[in-house]
Amino acid sequence: MADKNIDDLKAIRSMMEQSSRFISLSGWSGVFAGIYALIAAGTAYMLFANSGTHYFETTNRTISIDLLNQLFAIGMITLVLALTTGILFSVRKSRKNNLQIWNHVTKKLLINLAVPLAMGGIFCFALFLNGSAVLIAPTTLIFYGLALLNAGKYTFPAITYLGYCQLVLGIIGLFFVGKGLLLWAIGFGVLHIIYGFYMQKKYQ
């Protein structure tokens, strides 16, 4: 009888968690996303060098349209890779724990992430059109941070700390323009890797 009571309480707790938070998010997704971001930042640095700009030395921030296209392509490839890896790890984790991957919580989580991210995308496009491209890097970090804060209600609360870190980094970036690549390497690279290992250690 006492065992049944303990089992019942455990079932209540796990059901409350499962029905309100997406718990199939794997720490490895963060680690891999971080590694991709660092590789991308390295590649971007090389592209700058090849086009005759030494990123950390120059104050000349005019870049050719070719280079801009290449940088944009790198960014998109990194995003797609990170998302794909994230989805794969989540599916794997949900199978392992015998959980549904697609339910009302997943939908809420994705909507809460997608709306601020889409707004951020449009905002950055407007910055680009108005000749303020230099603000794009910190702006992406700020909107990403807000998206994470927003999504924190529907997954592990720890993700909000990652959100705050991205926000701080983005705000700093707004006042020290021209360090976009470095900001991205720290925000999307280093912070993701730290967060991923932390989550992996805490929840596995």
Binding site: D8, R13, M15, M16, S19
Partner: peptide, 8 residues
């Protein structure tokens, strides 16, 4: 138990 926990 599951129904009640989720609805809570």
């Amino acid at each position: 138990l599951g129904i009640m926990s989720s609805l809570m």
